[in-house]
Design a protein around this nucleic acid. Structure first.
Length: 933
DNA sequence: ACCGCCGGGTGCC
DNA sequence: ACCGCCGGGTGCC
């Protein structure tokens, strides 16, 4: 009985599945499962069409008073003015039109009277309208109670709804102004309920612009807040914390251990009231633990979170250094911990961490985990009187056993201590920074990490396993940062759940202190790749949805159920209701901590960074270099002019990029431009071998140009890149999965051309090392740019021999070429490449950060490697080698375009949207500028 | 009386 | 439900 330890609403589904054999069971239970845990968003199972989209564009058709009957058969109770949910019950034995009425908690209250249920069933089943209810006088009814229903739907469905109701003798009251937002309607007497409606404003519909500005206003005073309490990190934290990090720590610890009543809840005469829905219950709502740390990039969220994990290690107490020392010093870290390879999620893994089993997507509700045995499971039907009561389930217990380890008690759902911190780098945080700016799915996924702790066993005391889920791109950053910030004498079991030989042993995993994994690993098990064809809503809708999934993860009642979120916050906000906007703001204030780089603490800026000075160094090519440059340029120019004449510039975009790339390479060093073969050959006329070679070259161009290194399917950096015959590059596993699932007529996700596995061309093994050697064999020569660099470096060394510099280029071969003169001039340097294994990276960073004499003063950094989350605070100078502007070259033209764009951005903030053809024209013009056409 | 009226049994879907 | 509805009991004044 896999679903037994889910909460009421799922339990209710289980019951209906048993009694009625509901065919949709597998569909909505899996959805319900995700929404219970808020992982939905991260597993990309959201955006199921036909739900949100319908609700977001809905208008109010009108209202109707009806009756709820059969109250005495159910336990669900309702207060005056409390919202209720109407739910179809197509498998009801007595009436296939049955419509259930549930309270906010999901407990059934009764049914809609059958005469009304008949048209309602038709309307609901055909999705003509969403029907919502509020019970005006709910408290004292023994047999029936009135319910005020609102019908929301698309304008085009309005007449059908009115007609159907009329057929059955019902007539909608037209929407009154004060019931505009679906609650706080006209029948509410003066005393009742919170003042949701804003009659004065409700009449006028906000324009999109007005809504945007209202929405932006919400976030203005969010930055500076009274979250000023500071807290020292535990001993185990090896890095001193900055004041704002101590504040973050204090705030997070207080949120982790919060005993406060959650937001929107009040205690009144021994009852707990939800002020949004008017729901009340005797039981205290669960504490909302955790929140959103939405600081700007670079303020040290990762460090703050590590500090949190160590400081609030278990039961609000820190990880004790002494204990760990004596206990575990002899323990050798599991060598698997730092292995990073492609892999799949297992049920066992999540189970071990206290997530409920993922179950099957069929009606089979047995857990698929062989070593989890049901220990006891009781369903008691308490028929104390003639009236049946809702069945109650005892919490099931599970025993996790494995061959080698002793059995231990395991309470999956209940032991989850639900404390979590959500770190946001570019997702919701960027929505906070600029809420109405477009939020790409891609950006959204980039930095978000979810930190979730789980108790290791069911005793109250004792350590927890902390699960960190983050994108692959920052996984290594997390590992680095743990290395950096935990005192070296502290031994923590950190396990990276990634790689084909990862341990699936629940006993092993549960023994870990920290487990790191990625969204993709989590998601891969579901084979969900529908993200390719997303229906993107408006930015505000998206950020509201993002927020909902976070809230759902935090388990803030009643928002775990999307309906209540939608009715109380999302729709009012989308309709521009002031009350809704206010509620949203207090919500965000309550659960997020956000500082920007310009935030201040006690009058001082959060981060005192030295002023950034940018110098543009101009370089003149030697005559020799200029000659080569000109000849390649002329050749390229000729080809591109031909494309212009044919009107096929954009069709040959890769070739154009290739020309530009070669020119940029020539600005750096003549040896960089190895492949001078002209771009004029046509793919269509080649032999298979030639075709293959061309595709490989194209792929290398894409990979080295730095313009787009991400797979459009997984949105992560390319893993085993392959190129299709239509010249698009994806991760091999990603595209293979697409082909597999679309058989037999798979199409390219980007251009819909035909796809075949045997047509995929793999990238030959990383040439860099071997070609490096080749270039080493070739006689080394300098270049104007290298000369300029060396001149600057030597100058700098004269002023201060200890100064540390970063030398950044996207061309790794260029970095290799720079190594020679560095050695000759006696510089000690280190290097960081994207392809370097994790261990080497850590070594390179550590030696560079070292301030002792003789430590490297220069780090050669490839752009790809330097992209994400590197702490290279030792450096005070950065040399960006490309561009490092060569006069009269493509680089100067690049600079011109950059400046022009900057002016545009600064000048016309009212950025009018460019049409697709305008975008094209801009691109064409840019190409013209670059190549002097 | 193939009615009216009475009063008990009963009650969601 | 202090209702409606059902169906059995009953029947001049």
């Amino acid at each position: 009985m896999a679903w037994m330890f889910m909460r009421d609403s799922a339990w209710k589904y289980l019951q209906s599945a048993h009694h009625g054999g509901d065919r949709n069971y597998s569909h909505y239970t899996s959805r319900d499962f995700y929404s219970q845990f808020g992982l939905e968003d991260f597993l990309c199972t959201d955006d199921i069409p036909g739900t949100d989209e319908d609700m977001d564009s809905a208008v109010l058709f009108g209202t109707l008073r009806g009756n709820v009957v059969g109250l005495r058969y159910y336990t669900g109770v309702v207060n005056n003015n409390e919202m209720v949910a109407l739910q179809r019950e197509p498998n009801n034995l007595y009436d296939k039109n049955a419509v259930k009425v549930n309270n906010v908690n999901g407990n059934q209250v009764g049914h809609i009277k059958k005469e009304l249920a008949a048209p309602l069933a038709y309307i609901m089943d055909n999705k003509l309208a969403i029907v919502e209810g509020v019970v005006p006088y709910g408290a004292q009814n023994a047999f029936t109670m009135p319910v005020q229903m609102s019908f929301w739907g698309k304008e085009e469905n309005k007449q059908a709804v009115l007609d159907k109701l009329k057929m059955h003798g019902f007539k909608l009251a037209p929407p009154s102004k004060s019931s505009e937002f679906g609650f706080g309607s006209s029948w509410v007497s003066g005393r009742a309920g919170p003042s949701y409606s804003a009659p004065g404003h409700a009449a006028m519909q906000m324009t999109t612009e007005q809504l945007k500005s209202e929405f932006d206003k919400l976030f203005e005073d969010l930055k500076e807040d009274d979250k000023t309490h500071e807290m020292e990190g535990a001993e185990a934290v090896g890095t001193p914390l900055l004041p704002h990090q101590k504040q973050a720590l204090a705030w997070m610890v207080s949120r982790e251990n919060s005993k406060e009543l959650p937001l929107f809840w009040e205690e009144k005469n021994n009852f707990y009231y939800n002020t949004l829905t008017n729901f009340a219950e005797k039981e205290r709502p669960e504490n909302v633990l955790g929140g959103i740390l939405a600081d700007d990039m670079g303020l040290g969220k990762t460090l703050a979170t590590i500090a949190l994990i160590l400081t609030n290690f278990h039961d609000g107490k820190p990880l004790s250094v002494e204990k760990i020392k004596s206990d575990q010093l002899h323990k050798v870290r599991d060598p698997r911990a730092f292995r990073l390879q492609g892999s799949q999620l297992t049920h066992e893994f999540l189970e071990a961490l206290g997530f409920p089993p993922l179950g099957e997507t069929s009606c089979n509700v047995e857990p698929s985990i062989s070593n989890v045995k049901e220990k006891s499971e009781t369903v008691q039907s308490q028929c104390s009187s003639s009236r049946p009561k809702r069945a109650k389930a005892e919490k099931p217990k599970y025993t996790v056993s494995s061959d080698s380890e002793e059995s231990e008690e395991w309470l999956p759902q209940q032991t989850r201590t639900a404390s979590c911190v959500i770190q946001e780098d570019t997702g919701f945080a960027s929505a906070l920074a600029s809420p109405s700016a477009p939020l790409k799915k891609k950006a959204k996924k980039k930095g978000t990490a979810i930190v979730q702790s789980v108790k290791k066993n069911d005793s109250e005391e004792g350590p927890r396993t902390t699960l960190i889920i983050c994108p692959l791109s920052v996984l290594s950053n997390w590992i680095d940062q743990f290395e950096q910030h935990i005192r070296p004498d502290v031994r923590l079991n950190i396990y990276v759940y990634y790689g084909p030989d990862r341990s699936k042993d629940p006993a092993f995993i549960s023994k870990q202190d920290i487990v790191l994994t990625t969204y993709n690993i989590l998601a891969s098990d579901y084979g969900v790749f529908q993200i390719l064809f997303l229906i993107l809503g408006t930015p505000i809708q998206n950020s509201l949805k993002d927020l909902w999934s976070l809230l759902s993860f935090l388990k803030l009642k009643p928002f775990t159920d999307r309906e209540w979120w939608h009715r109380t916050i999302q729709r009012p906000v989308m309709l521009g209701d002031q009350g809704g906007l206010r509620r949203l703001q207090s919500l965000i204030k309550n659960i997020t901590l956000r500082r920007t780089k310009t935030s201040k603490i006690k009058g001082k800026p959060v981060l005192e960074l030295p002023e950034r000075k940018v110098f543009i160094q101009h370089v003149t090519l030697t005559e020799e270099e200029r000659k080569i440059y000109q000849s390649v340029k002329n050749e390229g120019k000729a080809a591109i002019s031909r494309y212009f004449n044919e009107g096929t510039v954009l069709a040959h975009y890769a070739d154009v990029l290739g020309v530009l790339l070669r020119l940029r390479q020539l600005c750096c060093h003549p040896h960089l431009c190895t492949n001078t073969s002209s771009s004029s050959c046509q793919i269509g006329y080649s032999t298979p071998e030639e075709l293959r070679e061309k595709l490989v070259n194209k792929m290398k161009l894409v990979l080295s140009s730095g313009s787009d290194e991400e797979c459009a399917i997984c949105l992560d950096s390319l893993n085993l890149p392959v190129i299709t015959h239509c010249a698009h590059v994806f991760c091999k596993p990603c595209i293979c999965e697409v082909i597999q699932s679309e058989q037999p007529n798979a199409k390219c996700p980007l251009c819909r051309n035909e796809l075949r596995v045997e047509h995929l061309v793999e990238c030959p093994l990383e040439e860099s090392d071997s070609s490096l050697e080749k270039k080493g064999d070739r006689e080394w020569i300098s270049s104007s740019k290298i000369n300029a660099l060396m001149h600057a470096l030597i100058d700098l060394r004269k002023q201060n021999p200890a100064v540390k510099c970063l030398i950044v280029s996207q061309f790794t071969t260029f970095l290799s070429l720079i190594e020679t003169p560095l050695k000759e001039s006696g510089f000690v340097f280190t290097r960081l490449n994207g392809s370097m294994p994790q261990k080497k990276r850590v070594q390179a960073i550590q030696s560079f950060q070292d301030s002792q004499k003789g430590s490297p003063t220069i780090m050669l950094l490839s752009l790809k490697a330097g992209g994400v989350g590197l702490n290279l605070t030792a450096a005070s100078r950065v040399f960006l080698m490309d561009p490092f502007i060569v006069k009269n070259s493509v680089e100067e033209n690049m600079l011109k375009i950059q400046n022009k764009k900057r002016e545009l951005a600064a000048g016309a903030f009212a950025s009018k949207k460019l049409t697709a053809s305008e975008v094209k024209q801009t691109k064409i013009n840019e190409i013209k500028t670059l190549i002097d056409l």
